Simulated assay, not measured.
Amino acid sequence: MDFRDDVKLDPSQVEDAGGYSGGGGGGGFPGGMIIGGGGIVSLIALVLVFVLNNMGGGAEPAQRRPPSNLSDQCQTGKDADQSERCRVVGVVNSIQDYWKQEISGYRPSKTVLYSGRLRTSCGTASSAVGPFYCPGDQRVYLDLSFFEQLHSQLGAKGGPFAQAYVIAHEYGHHVQDLLGALGSGASSVPIELQADCYAGVWAHNAVKTGFYDKPFTAPEISEALDAAAAVGDDRIQQRTTGRIDPESFTHGSSEQRVNAFQRGYENGRPDDCGLAELR
């Protein structure tokens, strides 16, 4: 997943809010935050109890992490290949460049990087809910520690393209917000699967945005498929409760999520990601 060395990045699309590291974790959903409906839509709207247990206990007191100056650090594709935060900038730039070409009047959405907890228009965010999109302020929120949790706690292989899939999924929710799908009354599973499909559509077309040297390779796409499977409701329920209850699914099974991403990636057309086809 190599960026073109000379491509110019637009770091204004990503804000580093800083935050707290160390013993700042806590159990339960963040206060005031709503999952679905008029609140957040997330890659994985579930409290990761086993993750939070590992974060708590005898942890050191939380320490403030100052914001990073992305404007100075993230200027070209070469920077994106060398820094995780700059890679996020490059991925966000490519995703929004693609959707700007597809949607008339597309309004950019800023990604906010944070650690620990952060107040948003959808309530107080924490790493307990994973990456999410907030329709209230039309922003994507991302605690970078989730990528380590995706690998170490959810069993995904991880990797740069797994990260890109996560970000592209959340921008899929922004597209839904702009097109009215979030207010359509559709249930959460097809909404989440459509966001996965939109992520695949971007992956199919990403090289056309000019940010990458070449199309993504099969091993890179495999990272996304593996991540999609890892955040399936069935896999998470099995890990957290030891049983699977399809009636309580909110995001779709591992198979559904993989199939949705593949549908978008293979066809490369947003129109093939209809809610009716993804139920």
Rank of each mutant, 00 (worst) to 15 (best):
D2Y: 05
D2M: 13
L9G: 06
S12E: 12
G19S: 07
Y20H: 08
S21V: 14
G24E: 05
G27V: 01
I35W: 09
G37M: 00
G38A: 11
V41C: 03
L43I: 13
L48A: 07
L48Y: 02
V51Q: 01
N54R: 06
N54W: 00
M55L: 15
E60W: 08
E60P: 12
E60D: 13
P61S: 13
A62L: 08
Q63A: 14
P66W: 03
P67N: 09
P67W: 09
P67Q: 01
P67L: 07
S68Q: 12
N69C: 05
D72P: 00
C74E: 04
C74D: 04
T76Q: 03
D79N: 11
D81L: 05
D81F: 07
C86I: 10
V89L: 10
G90F: 05
N93A: 11
Q96R: 09
Q101D: 15
Q101V: 09
I103Q: 12
G105A: 13
S109D: 12
T111M: 15
T111C: 03
T120G: 03
C122Y: 02
G123E: 11
S126Y: 01
S127Q: 12
A128N: 14
A128S: 15
V129G: 01
V129K: 00
P131M: 01
C134Q: 04
P135H: 01
Q138A: 12
S145F: 05
E148W: 02
H151Y: 07
L154W: 02
L154E: 08
L154R: 02
G158K: 12
G159M: 10
G159L: 07
A162T: 10
Q163V: 05
A168W: 11
E170T: 08
G172H: 06
G172W: 05
H173F: 14
H174A: 14
L179Y: 02
L179N: 15
L179E: 15
L179W: 05
G180K: 00
L182M: 11
G183K: 11
G185Y: 07
A186I: 07
V189P: 03
P190W: 02
I191Q: 05
Q194F: 03
A195P: 00
D196M: 06
C197L: 12
W202V: 15
A203G: 13
A203R: 11
A203K: 10
A206V: 15
F211N: 03
F211A: 06
F211G: 04
E220L: 03
D226W: 11
A227K: 05
A228L: 13
V231T: 12
D234M: 03
R235N: 13
T241G: 07
G242P: 12
I244F: 06
E247C: 03
F249N: 02
T250H: 05
H251V: 08
S253N: 10
Q256Y: 06
A260N: 09
A260D: 15
F261K: 11
F261N: 03
Q262I: 11
G264T: 14
Y265K: 04
E266M: 15
C273Q: 03
G274V: 04
L275K: 08
E277T: 15
E277A: 15
